[in-house]
């Protein structure tokens, strides 16, 4: 294979991985605060449809990106109010956020079906982009890719190197103790959930402005759920989320390359690969209990009602 072909393949892998990386990074922060939000798929599709719509109306893909981030964060609010202020079951509430998101996005998106999209163009650093093998990979990608790398580093730095990150971890590991120390547990969790929503929204915008610049109903196709699995796979560590996202990107892309090579396997089996891979990975991770238990936020999924 020539360097150009290798680079082209790597580029597709990275593009497929970016929305997973962003959504999983947001969910990681949410879960580190002790909240399990199964609504990632719903917030992501809201980001995809609002991002597409805002870009259509304004003609600017950046307006789409901004709209997706804001709408993703806003859309996480009903989940936050229910699970945090009303102490509802997080699993059921997260599910309903996903169902609601798919419904609302389907309704909003009906007017966008079949419209040509607005593409968020790649950044091309002159000269550097022409370096063989790595030029386009490092200096010629879409802006959201660079945002995703910044996000990964930022989340790692925030969680392990700042006082606020320590507070976040304290709330996730023992909300009772954090409350006793005078930390406003619910406020930390509200902020974390909205950050997760903003990330999921941005991931959705990547789908409808970069990956497939158009609106297709249910275009997230389970990516929100795979992002949730990635957080478990990464045992709540940001750098492992990055590795996991690129591995899953590679699995997703493998099907297209296999089809292009004319491999005699039914296309549906290849399309099922990312989902099957998710299950396999979850099994491998969960069977290694010591590794999972070490980083699992101890209060994950448990409602917190402060005593007064």
């Amino acid at each position: 294979m020539s360097p150009d072909v290798i680079q082209a393949i790597l580029l597709t892998v990275v593009t497929a991985a970016t929305p997973l990386l962003i959504a999983a990074m947001g969910e990681l922060v949410v879960e580190r605060s002790g909240v399990l939000n199964l609504g990632v798929e719903g917030m992501m599709i809201i980001g995809a449809v609002t991002g597409f719509g805002a870009a259509q109306i304004t003609g600017s893909p950046w307006a789409g990106v901004l709209a997706a981030i804001i709408c993703g964060a806003l859309f996480s609010l009903p989940f936050a109010v229910l699970t945090l202020s009303l102490a509802t079951n997080q699993v059921a509430t997260g599910l309903s956020l996903t169902l609601l998101g798919l419904g609302v996005a389907g309704m909003i998106g009906e007017q966008f079906v079949g419209l040509p999209g607005v593409r968020l163009e790649a950044v091309n650093v002159p000269f550097l982009v022409d370096i063989p093998l790595i030029g386009r990979l490092l200096f010629g990608q879409d802006p959201i890719f660079y945002l995703s790398i910044g996000l990964a580093v930022g989340v790692w730095w925030f969680i392990f190197r700042t006082r606020a990150g320590l507070t976040l971890r304290a709330v996730g590991d023992s909300h009772g103790s954090a409350h006793a120390l005078g930390i406003n547990v619910l406020r930390v969790r509200y902020l974390a959930v909205m950050f997760g929503g903003a990330c999921a929204g941005l991931a959705g915008a990547h789908l409808s402005l970069v990956y497939i610049p158009q609106w297709v109903e249910n275009m997230t196709a389970g990516r929100g759920w795979i992002a949730l699995a990635l957080v478990v796979f990464a045992s709540w560590l940001p750098l492992r989320v990055v590795i996991g996202a690129y591995l899953f990107g590679a699995v997703t892309i493998a099907q297209f390359h296999a089809q292009a090579q004319g491999v005699a396997i039914p296309s549906q089996l290849l399309s099922a690969l990312p989902y099957l891979a998710t299950i396999v990975v979850l099994v491998l991770i969960s069977s290694n209990r010591r590794m999972t238990m070490r980083n699992t936020p101890a209060s994950l999924g448990k409602p917190f009602v402060p005593d007064r």
Binding site: V91, G222, S271, Y275, I279, L282, V283, S286, S287
Partner: peptide, 30 residues
Amino acid sequence: LKARFGTNEILSSLMLVYVAELFLDWLVRG
């Protein structure tokens, strides 16, 4: 998977939905 390995049943059962849909698709087209 849940009983033997402690695998999260929410994610595994959901992933199998997509697999079942694709399996049905393959059967009726093939």
